[in-house]
């Protein structure tokens, strides 16, 4: 656990000393802010449903961009070798890097708290769905971070890692919107796989153990995948 903390600290440091972190956060805020507030006054409703509706889609682009460098950069620079010959295990490295990505996602979400605060001045805001939405957003961010981390472990090219990660996240977000084309027999199963489906449940303010379990299992499977990839490289 001590080693996980050390790697987490190092990765966070690497995130926030590079300008890319601030660029990604700015773009994220710009996109969400625009999509949310451009239609907010048309709806004339004091809630954040629009924001949370869009979040999975935006996350499926932004989170893989955050995680793409985690392994790829080390593999191409060769520092992977230096890191792995230090007394750390694969799980230490994976957990450290994963938690750093989660910290980054949280750092990205914190400024968006300005939205509910603004909205609460404009009307009666129900804080339940907002709290649910943020819990869901962190879980979703964690699941997508794990997927992005897995994608990053596959290749030494950051762009490839980004595209792989984005494709998986994007597919998981959209799968329950494509159910129309899919055979009826596996419909229920495919809907259950969809990340958006579970996220929308939570963001309505209903915290169901099934949804939480879903995000945790996606996270676990992706991290385990990264572990297998590391073992294969060894």
């Amino acid at each position: 656990m001590r080693q996980v903390m050390n790697i987490l600290k190092k990765e966070c440091g690497l995130y926030f000393i590079s300008p890319i972190a601030y660029i990604v956060i700015s773009i994220f805020l710009l996109v969400t802010g625009w999509f949310f507030f451009s239609t907010f006054f048309l709806y004339n409703q004091a809630d954040l449903r629009n924001f949370f509706n869009l979040l999975p889609l935006i996350f499926s682009f932004v989170v893989p961009a955050v995680t793409m460098k985690l392994f790829s950069e080390e593999l191409s620079a060769g520092s992977y070798e230096t890191l792995l010959t230090l007394p750390v295990t694969f799980s230490d490295v994976i957990l450290g890097k994963f938690l750093a990505a989660v910290v980054f996602v949280i750092a990205m979400l914190v400024p968006t708290l300005a939205y509910p605060i603004t909205v609460s001045f404009l009307g009666q805001l129900d804080w339940g769905p907002v709290a649910g939405g943020y819990i869901g957003a962190v879980l979703l961010g964690a699941a997508f971070s794990a997927i992005g981390l897995f994608a990053s472990s596959l290749t030494r090219n950051q762009i490839t890692a980004f595209i792989i990660g984005m494709t998986i996240c994007f597919g998981m977000t959209l799968i329950d919107k494509m159910l129309f084309f899919l055979p009826l027999s596996i419909l229920g199963f495919l809907q259950f796989i969809g990340a958006d489906f579970h996220f929308q449940n939570i963001s309505k303010g209903i915290i169901d153990s099934r949804d939480i379990l879903y995000f945790l299992s996606v996270t676990f499977v992706a991290l385990f995948g990264a572990h297998l990839v590391m073992q294969e490289k060894n």
Binding site: G13, S18, A77, G78, T85, P87
Partner: peptide, 18 residues
């Protein structure tokens, strides 16, 4: 074993931004 060893890989790959 890793604790007992110090290792300098070929061409010293390190973190560029650190």
């Amino acid at each position: 074993i890793k604790k007992l060893m110090g290792y300098l890989p070929e061409s010293a790959p390190l973190y560029h931004d650190m």
